[in-house]
Amino acid sequence: MPLGVVVRKTPGVTRWARWNWTAVAVLPGAGPVDWSELRCEADAVEYHAATLPLTLYAADAEAYRANLSDRVPSIYVILRDEPDDPNPLSVHLVTASPYEGQDYADNGEDIVEKVPMPEGLIAWVRDFTLAHHEIEDFIKRRRDKKRVDLQEDGKGDARIRQPSDVYRAPGRVLQ
């Protein structure tokens, strides 16, 4: 499903950041666009920055289920500051998976914004999740009967000769 991303530009609060860019909304079924101004109020300007496809995968149905069970189901918008791009930011990805959003947040390079999902999009993701999610039964792993505590290989420092205190640090040998 094509998903338009609305980005708001507001004045920065420090002298090091002149502008603050935030993804504030998504537009399901939006047409292709490239940084079209939607609204301007005083110093705040909202842009329809880009339209990207929201692709759902059956393997990620567990993640979508976790997202839908959240208090406010959300779309995760990944923004990048690309130096050679003429636009202020590039919209890299939109996803409904909180796990994928967390992966992008961990790298420290991307801006990950959590945008509330509109009602129609919640229904679309819910229907997909119900059709593709399979609950896996928990199977407890059984331990094998091998005794691993009988031999202490690789324990301690090989330079210590007596077996009684293998954790002692080696000292200088006085002659």
Rank of each mutant, 00 (worst) to 15 (best):
D84S: 14
S164L: 13
P86Q: 09
R141A: 10
L3G: 00
R168K: 10
D149M: 06
R8N: 08
H48N: 06
L174A: 06
V77S: 00
V115N: 03
P88A: 09
I75F: 08
A17L: 12
M1T: 11
E37H: 06
E62R: 12
G12E: 03
D106Q: 13
P116F: 08
D157R: 11
V94M: 02
R80F: 14
R159S: 07
Y76L: 04
A123I: 04
D81T: 12
A59P: 08
P163L: 14
A49T: 03
V115E: 04
G4A: 01
V166S: 14
I75Q: 00
K155Y: 15
D34H: 09
L93E: 10
R39I: 04
Y167V: 00
K155F: 15
V77Q: 01
P118G: 07
L89N: 10
E100A: 12
G108M: 06
W19V: 07
G108D: 11
V125W: 03
L38S: 03
K145W: 11
S164M: 11
V166D: 14
W21P: 03
R168G: 05
V7S: 03
V115S: 04
Y99R: 05
W19G: 00
P83R: 08
L93P: 00
P118R: 05
P116M: 06
D60L: 13
E62W: 15
T22S: 09
K9L: 13
A49E: 04
Q151S: 10
L130K: 04
D149E: 10
G154D: 13
A44C: 12
G12A: 02
R142W: 06
R143F: 14
P170R: 05
D106A: 15
W35G: 01
V115D: 00
Q102R: 14
L93G: 04
G156R: 06
E119Y: 12
D165R: 14
K114A: 08
T51D: 07
Y99N: 02
W19S: 04
V112F: 09
D110S: 10
T10Q: 15
P28V: 04
R39A: 07
Q151V: 14
I122Y: 10
Y99W: 07
R172V: 11
P53H: 12
E82P: 05
A59I: 14
D70Q: 05
S97M: 07
V173R: 12
T10G: 01
F128A: 01
Y57E: 07
W35F: 13
A61Y: 13
N20Y: 14
P2W: 09
P170F: 07
W21G: 01
R172P: 02
D127I: 00
W21N: 02
Y76D: 03
A169G: 03
A169E: 12
L121V: 01
D81K: 11
V26I: 05
R71N: 08
L93M: 14
A49W: 05
H48V: 00
K146T: 08
A23R: 03
K114H: 09
P53M: 10
N20K: 11
D110I: 03
T51A: 09
V72R: 11
K146S: 08
D137K: 06
R15L: 14
T51W: 06
V72S: 08
A63P: 02
Q175V: 05
G31A: 06
G29D: 08
A30E: 08
W124I: 03
A131Y: 02
H133K: 07
V173C: 06
H92I: 02
D153C: 12
